[in-house]
Write a protein that binds this DNA or RNA. Structure first.
Lengths: 198, 198
DNA sequence: TATGAAGTTGACCAGTCGGTTAATTTGAAA
DNA sequence: TTTCAAATTAACCGACTGGTCAACTTCATA
């Protein structure tokens, strides 16, 4: 009952893009509405606040990304290859974004986290949860790799955190230097950290 | 000739603290002036813009930090120990900030970089330059360690970048989870990356 | 085809944003 | 003790901030 609308989705899409390309602070409700072709009154019909839209946008993005990750981290694929492919996937995505925006945008979760985590708890909690889920992909791949003896035998959780922190640092540097090439370093870097044999 | 003033320094100090505790976007000129006990008119007497104050504040902070780094990375200290001490120094600083703000604040260069690098080139260039200088401390320590055979023999520049990206990722996670304990992971993490022998 | 729930609209709000200005006060150096 | 460059001040600017609201339009369903 009542009429249907795509405005909510348009707002979510606009929010993700604007945050990614700029920052949370540089993204105003007016900008979002312009980009989505939605009037401000409608914005607040669908979302309680700017923060709530950001939460919805980030969660939506993560839900989408998870579908890819579930394929990339399929147990059928050799474990080390899963991690490498995951970052190759990042690189490709960043390349497409670069063609569109003329800039390397890095990881929005990470950039948003750095910006808002001392200021907006609601958003911070959302980002925390997503990163906690993400790292589990690395963790289980590392455990599988250790079981088959293809990498060094350290605590899997610890190794996953190292690779994860490293990958986020790399993504940030790629954003800061607007340089896709930085992302190519991951392959050799991850192999060094994981002590890949052969 | 003319009168003297400490307003400029007070503004710089206030800016660093506010950016570190929050973000660039959450730090308004009015907040800075309040904190520094300076009227807005004086602000614009000393600085062209908010961006220029940020640049001055970041550069001032880096100049101070370099003094510590020059001691920490003294060639007299065993090379691997230099890198470890550098992060121990971070940890201690973060502990003091935690006592003051009740929050882990992480690396301001890094957080600022994530926030503004697509939006404010002037600031981005300043941050780039500082990070480029920073990594050289790691690089030369790594080269010394390799010369004395205490770590693995990979390309020193590449290793430095890995350790550096890793440390920034760690600092971010400590900020996001408001958890000083994350920083303790650096010691074992760095040893794994560098392949410390013994 | 009537209905009312859901979506849309534009005008409006008080507060804040970064930044400007001209008048005034200060105190270091001559 | 005078001088005047430098520092301070408060009032002001227009644009924009996140958010509200009541009137209005639409269209899926019954």
């Amino acid at each position: 009952m009542g009429r249907t609308s795509t405005a909510k989705d348009r707002l979510i899409d606009a929010m993700i893009e604007l945050i990614w390309a700029g920052s949370y602070g540089s993204t105003s409700v007016d900008h979002i509405c312009d980009k989505a072709g939605v009037k401000k009154g409608s914005f607040y019909h669908f979302f309680e606040s700017k923060t709530e839209l950001a939460v919805a946008a980030i969660e939506h993005g993560w839900t989408e990304h998870r579908k890819e990750l579930d394929q990339i981290f399929s147990p059928v694929v050799p474990p080390v290859e899963r991690i490498l492919n995951c970052f190759r996937n990042f690189r490709q995505e960043q390349e497409e974004l670069f063609q569109k925006h003329g800039r390397v945008l890095g990881c929005p979760i990470h950039s948003l986290g750095a910006e808002v985590s001392t200021v907006d708890e609601r958003l911070r909690d959302t980002l925390q949860e997503i990163l906690s889920q993400f790292i589990r992909y690395y963790e289980s791949a590392i455990r599988d790799a250790q079981a088959q003896g293809s990498i060094v035998t350290h605590d899997a959780m610890a190794l996953a955190r190292i690779v994860f922190a490293y990958s986020e640092g790399l993504l940030l540097h790629a954003r800061m230097w607007n340089d896709l090439g930085r992302l190519d370093e991951f392959e050799s870097g991850a192999k060094i950290i994981l002590g890949v044999k052969g």
